[in-house]
Every structure is written in C-alpha cells, then in structure tokens.
Design a protein around this nucleic acid. Structure first.
Lengths: 190, 190
DNA sequence: CTGGCGTTGCCGAACGATTGGTATAATTTC
DNA sequence: GAAATTATACCAATCGTTCGGCAACGCCAG
C-alpha cells in the first residue's frame, strides 16, 4: 500500500536534510514523510541514516558532474554556458527558499564521514568555473579567486535568502555570476 | 573550583554550536566542555538548551549592534569605517575556520524559536551597510543590493572556507567588502 | 492450471543507548 | 549559618536500530 521507491525516499530525505539538517532530521520524521515504517527504511538502506546521507552526497555529485563537464564544452560561448548552468542551479535550489545540502552537511559533529566528498565536490565546482574563466581570457590566478568568490556568493546568497526570507537575493546572485567570472570590472588586489 | 561564570559557559556553548550546530550539540557535550555537571548547567540556565541558544542570539545582537552604530559615525571616512568593521568581523569569526552562528541556527527544525531574531539582526546588518553606502553617494536602490550581496559574500565565503579548508577565501571577502559597497565598478542590472 | 516456495517490500514492536531535564543532597562560598 | 553552586542519581521520552513475521509477487515443478 505505502510503496515508495528508493528514489522517492531519497528525495524526501533530501528535503528534510536541507530543511532541518542531518542531526535535526530523525528517522521518525523520515518515516512520517515517506509514509513508510522505520523498519521499511532499513530494508532499503541497511546502513541507516549514514547511508542515506552518503547516497545523497553521491547523488549531489552525480547532479553536478555532468553539468560541470558541460561547462567545458567549447561549442557555445562561455557566458551562455554559465547562464545555462545558473538557471539549472536555480531549479536545483528551487528558487532559493530551500537550503543547500552543502551547508546542511557542513554543520555537524566531527565524525562526519562525508566531509572529504563534499570538499572534493566543491573544489570540482570551483575549478570548473575557474577553468572556464581562464579560457575566456581571465588571468590564471585571478580566475581561481573569481571562481571561489562566485561560489561563495551563491552559497551565501542562498543562506541570506533563507534567513531574511527574500529569495531575490539568491536570484540576483545567479544573474550576477557571469559578471563575477568574466566581467572586466573586478578590482585586482595587490 | 570549577566555577565557570555564565559568560564562560556561553562561550563554550557558542563554540560547540558553531562547530556542531544546535541539534548536533548535546547537553552531555556541553557538560564535558565546561567541566560542569548537567545540574550545574540547568542551575545557570533553567531553560536548558533553548535558553542558551536564545541568550547566544542576544549576545550576537549585542556584539553587532554597537558596531553597526559605529558604522554610522560620520567622524571618519566611510571606507575606513568599513575596514575597521571588517577587521572586527575577522576576529569575531576567528579568521574563518570556525562557522557562523547565523548559519548554524538557520538549519534546524521548524519550531526554531529564534528565527525572527536572527532575521531581524541580519536585516539590521544589511541596512547598516546599505545606509553607509547610500551616504557615500551610491544610489539608494543599488545601495540595498550592494549591502545584501556584501553580507551574502561574507557568509558564503565563511561556508566555502570551512568546507574546502582554505580560510584565504574568507580573508579575501573581508578585503573586498569595501569595494563591493562603494566601488564604481559594479554593474547595475536593468 | 495448481500448489508450493523463495524473494521482495512492508510493518508493529521492541531493543539498548542517549536525549533533554529534574529531583535531592552534598558541597562550597561568604 | 544561609545562600549559592555542584554532584549523584534518576526520570520519561526519544534516538537510531533490529527483530520476527506478514502479505504479495514471480517462478518453476508437477
């Protein structure tokens, strides 16, 4: 009767993690959200909550990787590629009201198993943007900092949007991202 | 002997919250960190963990408010004032490796009592920067977005610094903040 | 077609451990 | 000695997790 596939379960858990964080989400909450008994959850995920988190991180990586690859496809102009990527980020973060899995999992007790994966993924994200900026003529050292700042702006905008309840901040960060990467207006620091 | 004052307890709890989040921090952890029995903690904070959180938010506000007021002091040039504020932010966030209480408390279950206070405080922060930018000649509507983006950049840089383990990202956000607020290089959007 | 049988998915109930919280008594401090 | 502070022991509730069993499925032998 209450039959939910693995994907559906993970989707529900993702929503809960993004809203309540890893430690703030209990198996009881997951059970309630998925309409599945707790025992059923352990049937699909014998490793329990940790396995769910790990699979979600893997899912996150699977979402990012092909899109970061797509950024390197030289068939279309760089600005356009970034804009496409940003619009995908927009729908991925559902407009900004919901939190980010990165942020949700960055907070937590030390034995957080998946920190390395998160770090690697974020570095992958940054370096993809940096590479793109560099190929567009931005000096190498500046390209790296631009990419870092761009990702920081997006993540920060997501957080601020959530706290003050105004998603336009996140929307603006998406729009400004291309200029942060390529714009000539950026001051270099000594 | 182990007479930890309220301030010392709150300081320890602050560190734990910033590192592990609100739900990720247990009273047992607080007890261990402060070397105080749980009963002692409840003697100082009859309201338990919630009261600690609320008092920490109040402490956060008490830290911010005078410094935001100081931003409005027209005795010194605006850029200098912002730089001073940023260096204070630097020591407040201890160079960037530690997380932010805003971010730590933004994640959590819905009945999060202090969300309104956090929202108001962040709005206060933003509007103080916006007012400063406006007084320095930035058009009013642009000043608001600059301030929002500036705060987002700082919070995001803090998060990214923590995840990838490179505090230079946060340091750079501090340095670039004045330009984000006042710089003429920023593109307006249609 | 039938009858069993293993597999799969689900659930109620319960596990030990830990959660936040509270008695009450012993201790310190002044 | 009175007040403030701490420790010991305990509480119900909830935590993540596990167990045993039940219903429904496809599959193959007879």
């Amino acid at each position: 009767m209450a039959t939910a596939s693995r994907q559906e379960i993970l989707q529900a858990v993702l929503e809960l993690f993004r809203e309540c964080g890893y430690e703030g989400t209990s198996m009881a909450m997951i059970s309630e959200r998925t309409k599945l008994g707790k025992a059923s959850l352990y049937h699909h995920f014998p490793g329990g909550k940790e396995q769910m988190r790990d699979e979600l991180v893997k899912l996150l990586a699977d979402w990012f990787r092909p899109r970061l690859e797509q950024l390197k496809d030289d068939a279309t102009p760089p600005r356009g590629r970034v804009k496409v990527f940003m619009s995908e980020l927009d729908s991925f973060f559902e407009g900004g009201q919901r939190g980010c899995l990165f942020a949700a999992l960055a907070v937590g007790t030390a034995e957080n198993g998946c920190r390395i994966e998160l770090k690697d993924l974020m570095n992958l994200w940054i370096s993809a943007l940096a590479e793109l900026a560099e190929k567009s003529g931005v000096p190498a050292n500046d390209a790296q900092t631009r990419a870092e700042d761009c990702v920081a702006q997006l993540e920060g905008a997501l957080l601020v949007s959530r706290i003050v309840g105004d998603k336009s901040i996140f929307k603006r960060a998406l729009r400004q991202a291309p200029d942060m990467l390529f714009g000539s207006s950026r001051q270099l620091e000594s």
